[in-house]
Design a protein around this nucleic acid. Sequence first.
DNA 1: GTGAAAGCGCTAACAG
DNA 2: CTGTTAGCGCTTTCAC
Lengths: 337, 337
Amino acid sequence: MRSLQVTIKDIAKQLGISASTVSRALKDHPDISEKTKIKVKALAKELNYKPNAIALSLQSSKSNIIGIIVPQIVHHFFSTVISGIEEYAGKKGYNVLICQSNESIDKEITNTQTLISSRVDGIIVSRTKNTEDFKHFRNIQNSFIPLVFFDRTCHGLKTDKVIIDDYKAAYEATEYLIRTGCKNIVHFSGPENLKISSKRMWGFRDALKKNSIPFKEEYIINADNLEDGQNETEKLIRNNKIPDGIFAVNDMTAAGAINALKKYNIKIPDKVSVIGFTNELISAITDPPMTTVEQNGYIMGCKTAELLIKRIENIDAPFISEIIPTKLIIRDTTKKN
Amino acid sequence: MRSLQVTIKDIAKQLGISASTVSRALKDHPDISEKTKIKVKALAKELNYKPNAIALSLQSSKSNIIGIIVPQIVHHFFSTVISGIEEYAGKKGYNVLICQSNESIDKEITNTQTLISSRVDGIIVSRTKNTEDFKHFRNIQNSFIPLVFFDRTCHGLKTDKVIIDDYKAAYEATEYLIRTGCKNIVHFSGPENLKISSKRMWGFRDALKKNSIPFKEEYIINADNLEDGQNETEKLIRNNKIPDGIFAVNDMTAAGAINALKKYNIKIPDKVSVIGFTNELISAITDPPMTTVEQNGYIMGCKTAELLIKRIENIDAPFISEIIPTKLIIRDTTKKN
DNA sequence: GTGAAAGCGCTAACAG
DNA sequence: CTGTTAGCGCTTTCAC
């Protein structure tokens, strides 16, 4: 099973020269004669020599691998970001090792340990909803491994981060509802300890306030997935508390709301307007197609990779919080302006 | 920048013992005294020692990394499979290095080279639509790196593979259309050199034949994405060639068809039935929710990882083609049986 | 121009 | 029970 791969030594032996010469020849070291270079390269090609990245890593203490921890790969937003990271990193000569935490803090902790052991050159994280204790992230920093968060960040940790302006995006979405005539708007919200959720909620609240719509606690409803969105909307309908606008913390929840409204034959957007968040694939597929906030996952991914690689190259640069612009995508679940 | 991580040597030095003793103590070697073990482990913990996986890999020629090459991470089916691979592999102590080919054969070739260089213990591939030349895959095999394909396989290569019975699934879907009264069915098909596409097409054709519906070439239309699905359907409508059933090679294409039909106010499923393929998220969101074929990506991923790891452990086992069962998910774009 | 030797972090065979 | 040594594949001084 061992040594199936051709090594520099094999080449050296066959050519009757030393390993160091082979090494130098392969990287066009100026000291080596053209003749030797040609011989070496020819044989390397013939034997299908591939440098052993592991040996290189050990020797240079650089793995050229970036570790990623996300709650779920299948979530469209995350896979978009991963895709951006992979592309950008690939161009810069890095590979990506991907772990999912499945929204479990224990798994997240294991993941960080694996990545540290793997001696990745840097780590990118979007944390679980429940992470409250950041010890494992500190652990990464104590190991002097560059760490960058995207989207779901950790308050109080000094790192680079790539986020969107959730507050502003939510504010604008809500204002759009108000501007198009909604007066009685409900917000389907995610867990409060997730900064992105609370920011979206505050954007919503402040938009009401700014537009002189008195706030009621019952405007905020906990729901951040398809089922909850559907159930909570049905509850509103049955309790005869139908709002004229719904702003959901994500697209799936909005899709649930749309389902419920259609089930009860409530016209969208005439009776009720709906806005989602993220602009996932599904948001163009709902009927009617959904107005939502474009979150630019791909660009986020590229930017995150860029920040991380910069930090790998210069560990002492000042920390950056990059804000990726969002955009309200107006489709047909809202009235025209 | 160097040696920021604690090594076994550091521990040895501080304790005034040898590195090998530390190494043995950490892995509970029976030769080592309890006293030493306790001392070593305590210090290791205190110094936050993490074994250097790279050194381990070099020494054991085993990286415990599985390489994955898929056309696109963002594609829901692929991310589902990746998720399954990651979970199963994680439990077995493997990490996953992910590359995307972006349906480009050149990128796919580069990807294989990177993975070989990285000395991954095995490689999982779902190939690009256009791959015709399999040299790079042979290259993997010549390097004695276990290789497993899933879904999009390569004809003629001796490898393990995990697939679904595309023919049967398509046959059954088509028969369901026929059984529920469709007589004039169109198939939106993918590229012919992709085995999964051609198998689905033949399943479709043979189901017609078996049910004495004469086949016409015009029943097969090239379309495998949202836009094409929509455009081709609109074309049919405008040319007054409206079928009473559409079987699409994937969900997105079916979603495009649904859009077009609704645009022209053609009732689904009364006038036209539609069936998709894969059961992506969107298929439950379309209006009406789409009948489609469940492809069990997650299970495929687990199974693929399982086969690969088995092969890593026993390179000489006979090759296996694992067939993951599919299931027709009946929703509301088809008539009731 | 090329070779010999040391070392990256770790394990394992061999001593004692 | 513990230490010494060699070696995984490669690069990099330091010699010659």
